[in-house]
């Protein structure tokens, strides 16, 4: 299977002091939705700019759809769609003209009106100057531009920002439609809830290095952040020992409610079966560890690691930290 994006030891320095991206090894597979996360200044934008050929890597390489970005940039841009973050459209061109521009540049046979309708931009608005657009309208227009030519890879940089709830739902639906068509989506966002809903895998970037790369479920398992199961029973039987179930980290009882912390997804059902065998379970609530909690775990650990590196005087270990999860001891915080 061809990779949509592949970076090998990708590094970008600005001057002598700023190491924006540090030996990044990343693979985005064909047809997947990949979430790219990181706090401000983590190096996400720099990475995207290198993927697009806007910035030259200091070292390492990037290939997109099997092509080298430095040598085959035009061919790549013919086959990808881009929704850039934080840019102002051409103020005196209409939304429709922006989309027509993309159709013209790609030599595609899309219908601009159909694309604009698909992203929910009203036909009257589509014929107004883009300078009059709200952030959400400009975002919808940019999404329409990104969809031109049925791209094999769509790079969405903060696509939810400025969208109303309807817009966010529409974005999610379009992402699903595009992946069903076979496109890969590179989804860069700081709205973790959105990433959690749409992404197959995520990569978390911190201080220029990839600190996590996996499915969200696997990251939960690796960190043992798991989930919390709250079960309300008709009566709490004597000698209840849910903590003895494999995968259960801790349990407590308050009135008729049993709160169980599990470290792995599979333990949720095991714990519930244990309760069901001994009492009548009247109500259940399950709270999975949010991506935000995972994000905090990874980026917080990385901060500590970086501080240790700084005192130790060795900053050459960026590649080592690429996908190692934080130490298990850190997992205790989330329980």
């Amino acid at each position: 299977m061809m990779t949509a994006i592949q970076t090998d030891a990708l590094t970008k320095r600005f001057g002598e002091d700023v190491l924006a991206v540090d030996g990044l090894d990343l693979e985005v597979r064909e047809g997947e939705v990949f979430g790219f996360l990181g706090p401000n200044g983590a190096g996400k934008s720099t990475t995207i700019n290198m993927i697009l050929g806007f910035l030259q890597p200091t070292s390492g390489s990037v290939s997109v759809l099997g092509m080298d970005v430095t040598r085959e940039s035009l061919a790549i841009r013919q086959r990808i769609g881009l929704l850039p973050e934080g840019y102002e459209p051409y103020e005196n061109l209409t939304g429709r003209e922006h989309v027509e521009s993309a159709i013209h540049a790609k030599g595609a046979d899309d219908d601009a009106d159909e694309l604009l309708e698909r992203v929910g931009l009203d036909p009257d608005d589509a014929r107004r100057a883009a300078s009059e657009y709200s952030t959400g309208m400009a975002k919808r227009m940019s999404l329409a531009v990104a969809l031109v030519g049925e791209p094999e890879l769509i790079i969405l940089d903060e696509p939810s920002t400025g969208l109303d709830p309807d817009g966010v739902a529409l974005l999610r639906r379009i992402i699903q439609e595009e992946t069903e068509r076979g496109a890969a989506i590179f989804f860069c966002s700081h709205i973790l809830e959105e990433v959690e809903k749409v992404c197959d895998r995520v990569g978390i970037l911190n201080q220029g290095a990839l600190v996590a790369l996996d499915t969200i479920d696997n990251l939960r398992s690796e960190l043992q952040t798991g989930a919390t199961v709250s079960a309300q029973l008709d009566a709490v039987p004597d000698g209840l020992d849910v903590a003895s179930v494999d995968g259960v980290r801790a349990a407590s009882v308050t009135d008729r409610t049993v709160d169980i912390e599990v470290s792995a997804a599979a333990a949720k059902m095991d714990a519930l079966r244990y309760l069901d065998d001994r009492a009548t379970v009247e109500d259940v609530r399950i709270d999975d560890a949010s991506l935000e909690a995972l994000f905090d775990e990874y980026t917080g650990t990385r901060d500590a690691t970086a501080a240790n590196d700084a005192t130790g005087g060795d900053d050459g270990a960026g590649g080592d930290a690429t996908v190692d999860p934080p130490a298990a001891a850190d997992g205790g915080e989330s329980a």
Binding site: L52, F54, L82, P84, Y87, E88, P89, A105
Partner: peptide
């Protein structure tokens, strides 16, 4: 400065 260049050069324009 406005970032509009990303629209044009994000497309297959050299």
């Amino acid at each position: 400065e406005r970032g509009s260049i990303k629209h044009t050069l994000g497309l297959p324009n050299s």
